[in-house]
């Protein structure tokens, strides 16, 4: 408002060229290639790609009830993981941002970030050990074993930092005086949380949920490690591409999570949460 931004000069344009090229060619181009491949097929015997337009992949996708089941299961797991992470992240982030001393806060931020330094595989295999019939959880009398429950636990663990960090940032932006004002006006802690904290960090929760949701939608490695016989969308894509060598069908099915995520982002946009990111 104070000074009008200068129109970008030719030099700014040059600076933007490499990232735009990357975005346009590598990123969108790859998505385009994926979309295109979904309309091809393979030679059933040799597995070679046959570049002839066909809708067979999509027909199979919609007719085979197994794909619907797997899509719904994947969505369910993604929703569950997101909810678990949200429920865990809210008190942790609140404690970090509003209760802990600055020193403890720094330590906690490091503690939250630390698991991100470890390899995804190491963490997933660690949970394989935890969930094993003879693993540490069984000593406590809990042994969910490998399957959906173990999968939700593991994925919720893996993606928790991606939920805590935005929510923590949101909590930090929330002025202490708002919490004091709420309490001052007669609201007990729970009412303050529900009416002031939660609405204030809602955009941050949504931001975190985009991570947890999309990462779960796409995961197939943790499923292999702790999911037992469970199949998720990512496994079908990976098996079709990496095992059955059916790239076109893999591409067709991979479009499903893309559509789901676009839909999810559409809903998120309507809540207005994206403007606050």
């Amino acid at each position: 408002m104070s000074t009008r931004p200068r129109p970008p000069g030719p030099r700014t344009g040059l600076l933007l060229l490499p990232p735009l090229l990357w975005l346009g060619v590598a990123y969108l181009g790859a998505l385009g290639a994926l979309f295109l491949a979904a309309f091809w097929t393979t030679n059933e015997f040799t597995g070679d790609l046959v570049r002839v337009f066909t809708l067979d992949n999509f027909r199979e996708l919609f007719q085979g009830s197994v794909y619907r089941t797997i899509t719904l299961r994947t969505l369910g797991v993604a929703v569950l993981v997101t909810l678990v992470d949200a429920v865990l992240a809210l008190p942790i982030a609140f404690f970090m941002a509003k209760v802990a001393s600055p020193r403890l806060r720094r330590l906690l931020v490091i503690a939250v970030l630390m698991p991100l330094w470890a390899s995804y595989l190491v963490k997933a295999y660690a949970w394989r050990g935890m969930l094993s019939t003879s693993g540490p959880l069984s000593w406590l009398g809990i042994s969910p074993g490998y399957g959906l429950t173990g999968l939700v636990i593991t994925l919720a663990y893996l993606w928790l930092p991606y939920m805590i960090l935005p929510v923590f940032a949101g909590m930090e932006k929330l002025p202490d005086s708002l919490l004091e004002a709420s309490s001052d006006l007669g609201a007990p802690a729970r009412a303050t949380f529900r009416r002031v904290v939660l609405p204030s960090v809602f955009p941050a929760l949504v931001a975190g949920s985009i991570f947890t949701f999309s990462l779960t939608m796409g995961d197939y490695i943790a499923v292999k490690i702790v999911g037992g016989p469970t199949q998720m969308l990512g496994n079908v894509v990976a098996d079709n591409y990496g095992v059955a060598n059916n790239l076109p069908f893999a591409a067709a099915y991979a479009i499903v999570p893309v559509i789901v995520m676009l839909g999810y982002l559409g809903i998120v946009r309507r809540t207005g949460a994206l403007e606050n990111l």
Binding site: P175, S177, L178, E180, A181, S183, D184, L185, G186, A187, P188
Partner: peptide, 15 residues
């Protein structure tokens, strides 16, 4: 706790 006290506050930043 604050919410049991029969006082109300006008904050410096209005809150």
């Amino acid at each position: 706790p604050p919410f049991r006290r029969d006082v109300n506050t006008v904050f410096q930043d209005y809150a």
